[in-house]
Design a protein around this nucleic acid. Structure first.
Lengths: 199, 199, 199, 199
DNA sequence: GATGAATGAGTCTTCATTCAT
DNA sequence: CATGAATGAAGACTCATTCAT
């Protein structure tokens, strides 16, 4: 599969990936058949297996690309910002911006989490994201002399907020990415920084 | 299917539901075949269809029961508490306690959200839960003279936190329900009440 | 199965036969399940097999009864009439009258003709009817010094007319039994007696 | 299913149709499984569904083709003959000739009449045939100043005769198509024209 | 590169029949 | 007599994958 593709071949491949991404996200993995995909492009069945080893491998590839791309976007946004709280905020905002641009990819990540078969492929990406975020959280806790929250739990809480708001409100589901990001940031930083104050 | 069942029949039915719940949650809906279920009980294939109209209907029924039961647990926990912030806290704690008791059911709810076919059945339960929570959030905002957060978004944020922490840490996944609940409550109330203070 | 039945048993058996006759006729043999039948009477599955060896045997029994009864009706109507043409007419009229009274049974006879499994059981009854009719036709031909028609073919032609008109117009399908019988008799006797005249 | 087929594909499809026609006619619709059909050709199960949407759709398609073809044969035979009686005769003869050529198709038409599911598909063809025949009958009645028979009933009577004689004697069941046709024509025209004379 | 055709294991579901109670 | 439960072979249909051309 490390085959060299002609430009036309590359284009076909991209078309397949794009269509598959949309179908998987909208109808689910099982309800999207290889036949649907090739029919959607008006080509024969063989085409699919020329470019991909299997339906499963295609899904995994899309998944890997998506996680990689999200990672890239987050890193670019955070840059070399020093303040850990600010880094968290930039991470949240860039994640939401990315999801708004790639709603299908976000759906696929959620989808993959429900299938034994795909969960392992998700793991690595999730771990990296989580580790990064946890580190910022820990830094923030130290920096600001905060309470005794568990950084890993807080990191998950933040991811939970961002994931849920994205799934519910983005894109074109009732709110602009900016408004959603403002709400997410306010809530998360409140949760992070003001956790004790409520007692 | 509103048939009268003998005690033996009721027992079989319950066995099937229990096994199906576990299989659906652990292996997914599509990777659990009716054949798996009946083989798991060592009975003939027809048994399944004596008790359920179809695999899909069984899943929906499990889903409905789960949502109903969670709802009941939440209502019982909140009781007639007056303070909206306290109501929210009780809701979070009871939800996490319930999930610890019914981890499979929680998985199924997440699973159902990824299938077009089941999403409608989820909707009603989700809406009720969300409306209740939103109302408490709004009350809290008014009561405490808080900032201008959108109650619905905050409600979703809370659900995101609870769902994520539950999925990651409950049960027997590294933390007690109590610890998780403390973290969730601290983060969510911080997010709710201290949202402005960070600016 | 030559079991002695209590009066209540006899009644149950009759109910089953009646319901089965209607279902088989209206929905077909294959689309009527044993479960449908017992559910229709609100009894358990065992009841069916207490009274009948199998679904197939029940059908055959209904079929046999129907043919026997029709035969009886025809014989009674024809009595000792001497004129063969008149005998034919009486046969036609009594057949149509019987069908009007037993539309379901007539449907079953037609139905049985399309299933390999039942055709043999039909055969005997059909043969008797045909032989009788053929004899009358032959007598008529001799009596009236008619043309050289093949009695068997004419007999089939008559049965074809009667069967078709019955299926189409009886009962409550747009014509009274009397009108249908008049038309059938007129056509058949015309066909029998006036066959040559058209040349 | 409006797919383009290669010559090889067209051939497979035709093989399936031919085999299915024979099996349906000889063993009935229900006693012919898709497995039987593909096994009969020594191919895999999927082949069937490559060419047909379902077993039912295949049956309906065969039925439609049969009715269309019979219709074509009748129209070609009748041509522009003016005399209505002669038109009727030509119709009868061409029908019997067609049935002799397509005994299976004729069986299927009879078979379809016994299944709720197929009766609607039969209806249209039957109506056209009946309307045509009724018109000729009415013309004949007017032309020849005949008695007051109901044209529709007479048309049904003719169809009954033709159907029955064909089912019983064609093909290779004891009579040549010519002899059967002669008998059918003689009987039917006798029934049509000489209906009164018998009184 | 691409196509239409073929494969066949696997899925859900039905249903006549049997049986313990 | 009657019931509810169970059986299991059989059926229609799907679909990822392979392959000859």
């Amino acid at each position: 599969m490390g085959r060299q593709l002609t430009p036309r071949g590359q284009q076909r491949r991209d078309q397949l990936i794009e269509l598959a991404t949309a179908c998987f996200a909208e109808r689910g993995y099982h309800d999207t058949s290889v036949a649907d995909l090739v029919a959607g492009l008006g080509v024969g069945k063989g085409v699919f297996y020329w470019y991909f080893e299997s339906k499963e491998q295609l899904f995994v590839e899309i998944l890997r690309e998506a996680q990689l791309d999200l990672r890239r976007a987050q890193r670019a946004a955070i840059g070399d910002e020093r303040d850990p709280v600010r880094r968290i905020e930039l991470g949240i905002r860039s994640t939401l911006a990315w999801i708004e641009q790639h709603p299908h990819h976000d759906d696929l990540i959620r989808l993959a989490a429900t299938e034994d078969r795909f969960r392992p492929h998700l793991r690595r990406g999730e771990e990296i994201a989580l580790d990064d975020l946890s580190k910022h959280v820990k830094d923030a806790i130290v920096d600001r002399g905060l309470h005794d929250a568990d950084p890993e739990m807080v990191a998950h809480a933040i991811l939970g907020v961002v994931g849920r708001l994205a799934a519910r409100f983005l894109p074109g589901r009732g709110a602009s990415a900016g408004a959603v990001a403002d709400a997410a940031v306010a809530f998360c930083l409140g949760g992070l920084l003001g956790g004790d104050s409520v007692r």
